[in-house]
Design a protein around this nucleic acid. Structure first.
Lengths: 210, 210
DNA sequence: CGGACAAGTCAACATACGTTTACTTGCCGA
DNA sequence: TCGGCAAGTAAACGTATGTTGACTTGTCCG
């Protein structure tokens, strides 16, 4: 057998790698992060074992402690990644396209979809740092939405708008959670197109476009 | 010391009983159920230990296995209780009072409140029986709400209404979950009165009262 | 009273978990 | 080519969990 050609960063689409991976700490770290995000989002923090995660990622258990200090460190890294990703997508969305954006992300069945991200964010770990990350993400996105509909900080009358924006976000979360954790027809198999109409009605009713 | 008077079913309001309880299997069972519902709702199934529950209830750990066969049996009993309670309250609500009912239950901070019940129902346990109970509760309540707004089973055009009813339920769940698991102002400290207006707008937008 | 049976206690168990330690393997520069 | 060091591995450790079985205590009927 000759040595394998040094293919750089093969991105490993699909199942576990058939050929032996190269030794690459950064890639291994990322494999662990991806596997952990899927597991934590689906089963919750406490029900997920580090051995599960390592097996999914195809790496040794001890590397979790090496790269993330502990299971809790890995969870916080997942949370941070989900928070960044979520903040990036909500930041890029123009205010009048919010229902479409929510519908698109809810409908996305992939691991990067809003449903998985939000499920992950809602899982409690008993860790104070995790709570703070969660809060930050939700505060940021609800204030972005509220600001687009007339809310200004410290303006007395407009706190109603912030409350309503938070309820709109909560509605999106509720739909995402229901779709991801309970099979409920017709909601579970509704397409992006099916969702966008009701979502528009919902958001417009809570936050009139003025 | 004379023997205590045989006060029947003292209901033990408040903290742990200062005087020693009488030996009463039914009451002990109930104490375990209440403690377990609080713990499971707040911390999730996997993160809750049977020793925690027993300590909260002020009874011995071994009695959990005796009365509920196992931790999972206790969880299913909790789920059944929450499902019954939830089905009873939604069944009693006239259709045009749904927003008020949701607001009232969301605002109730007690252990019997909707927030706790729903948090409990959404916790995954990996158990198939639990999933089925969850589904049943949600199917029942969404069909009740949809039927009040014109949905009829097997009527082709009206599936839209069922979808929208499920989204309304999902919104209520989202608000409840957010309030119970993340401290987010002004949503977290909003009163029943603050919530009912936006909820009415939300429900009416999704399901026009015809 | 007093015994019988249910209600409740105690200690131990097997197991599965997160983490650590000592070890081996493969890669890269000199 | 080869030595050093990072990347990866294997096995073990201590602990906490759910569950069990033998034991003790209280209560109620005769």
């Amino acid at each position: 057998m000759t040595a394998e050609p040094p293919v750089p960063a093969t991105t490993e689409t699909g199942g576990e790698p058939a050929q032996r991976r190269r030794r690459d700490a950064a890639e291994t770290r990322q494999l662990l992060l991806d596997a952990a995000r899927r597991r934590f989002a689906r089963d919750g923090y406490a029900a997920t074992t580090v051995r599960d995660i390592a097996e999914d990622a195809g790496v040794n258990v001890a590397l979790i402690s090496r790269y993330f200090s502990s299971k809790e460190g890995l969870f916080e890294a997942c949370l941070r990644a989900a928070g960044d990703e979520l903040g990036r997508t909500t930041g890029q969305t123009p205010a009048d396209r919010v229902p479409e954006a929510i519908a698109r992300h809810i409908a996305d069945p992939g691991a990067a979809g809003l449903s998985s991200q939000l499920s992950l964010l809602l899982r409690s770990s008993g860790d104070a740092g995790a709570d703070e990350i969660r809060r930050g993400v939700l505060v940021r996105s609800s204030e972005q939405l509220a600001a687009a509909r007339g809310w200004r900080p410290d303006e007395p009358g407009s706190e109603q708008i912030l409350l309503r924006a938070q309820m709109a976000i909560a509605a999106g979360i509720g739909v995402a959670v229901l779709r991801s954790s309970i099979w409920l027809e017709p909601l579970s198999s509704a397409s992006e197109h099916d969702l966008v109409g009701p979502l528009r009605d919902l958001v417009d009713a809570l936050l009139p476009p003025r």
